[in-house]
Computed example of a mutant assay.
Amino acid sequence: MSQSTKSKPSRSGRSRRRGVAPDPALRVAAETAERVKRQRRTTPSEIVVGGRPSVDLLPTEVLADRRGSRVVRRMWAGVVLVAIVVGIATAGASLLSSQAHDDLTHAQDETLSLLQQQANYREVRDTEAGTALREAAQSVGGATEIAWQPYLASLKASLPAGVEITGVAIDSATPLETYAQADTPLQGQRVATLTIDAQSPTLPSVPSWLDAVKGLKGFVDATANSVTLDPTTGTYTVNMTIHVDQAAFDGKYQDKGE
């Protein structure tokens, strides 16, 4: 009785202890849900509201052909743009060249007109050239000229009363040759030498004469060479040498040339 009343464990109890095998469909769904959660945590998702689902079913060759066509169209557009730029540049260069040619032609016409006008006044230009040449020759030839007549008048006025100049010898520079200078030291530069003979009724004071001629224009120095007495007339003759420098030049042709 006791053996019959002892209860045996049921089959369901054994199955609960051992564990029930899960359904494969449920396991796949659980794994998929877990994978979706992980993707949502790692990458942000974009939610499109109201978007129209679309699928590109064209073959890859068609897409590649379309991309190639776009590239070709862009290349041709670039070629056309380059051609337009080159055409504009060529037109601008042609326009500038044409303007330059017109300016050159106009300048040549003006030059020819001026030459023709100058030919009408050739005689006048020849006369002007000859005048300029003569003025230049006068300027060079008269560069060493001294107005001797007023200079001798100034010399005579500087001598004492009663003294007369009886002889004058002049040696002056020329435009073609440099005037010879003295070899004696302490003598100044000169451009002309006057050697005069003067008569005096009385014995002259030579130092006074030398002091008197110092006021002459361009005076450098003066020397009394000799004093002689003429017994027949009782007059004294003084021989004197006077040196003058370039300040004695009259410069009239130089002034005229300026």
Score class of each variant (00 low, 15 high):
Ser208Ile: 13
Ala64Gly: 05
Gly78His: 10
Arg16Glu: 01
Ser54Asp: 03
Arg14Met: 05
Ser2Ile: 14
Pro150Arg: 01
Val213Pro: 04
Trp209His: 00
Leu63Met: 08
Lys8His: 07
Glu177Lys: 10
Leu194Lys: 06
Ile170Cys: 01
Leu26Met: 07
Thr235Tyr: 13
Arg41Pro: 01
Thr90Ile: 11
Glu164Thr: 14
Arg190Cys: 02
Phe249Ser: 04
Thr5Arg: 13
Gly167Ala: 13
Arg125Val: 12
Ser12Val: 01
Ser97Val: 05
Val48Asp: 12
Ser12Asp: 00
Lys37Phe: 08
Thr195Pro: 00
Val124Gln: 15
Ser205Met: 08
Ala180Glu: 13
Ala212Gly: 04
Asp255Val: 12
Arg67Glu: 15
Val20Gln: 07
Ala33Tyr: 04
Glu110Pro: 03
Gly130Tyr: 07
Gln149Ser: 11
Leu186Gln: 09
Ser69Asn: 13
Leu155Ala: 01
Trp209Asn: 06
Thr178Glu: 12
Leu159Gln: 00
Val86Ser: 12
Pro185Asn: 04
Pro207Glu: 06
Tyr179Leu: 01
Ser97Gly: 15
Gln187Ala: 01
Thr174Ala: 08
Ser205Asn: 15
Gly51Ile: 06
Ser2Cys: 07
Leu58Cys: 07
Ser2Tyr: 11
Pro9Gln: 04
Thr166Glu: 02
Ser172Lys: 11
Pro44Trp: 06
Glu61Leu: 09
Val86Glu: 09
Ser226His: 06
Ala248Glu: 07
Gln116Arg: 13
Arg40Ser: 09
Leu133Pro: 00
Gln149Val: 13
Gln189Cys: 00
Ala247His: 14
Gln108Glu: 15
Ala157Thr: 03
Val72Gln: 12
Thr5Met: 09
Val71Arg: 15
Tyr236Met: 05
Pro22Val: 09
Arg40Cys: 05
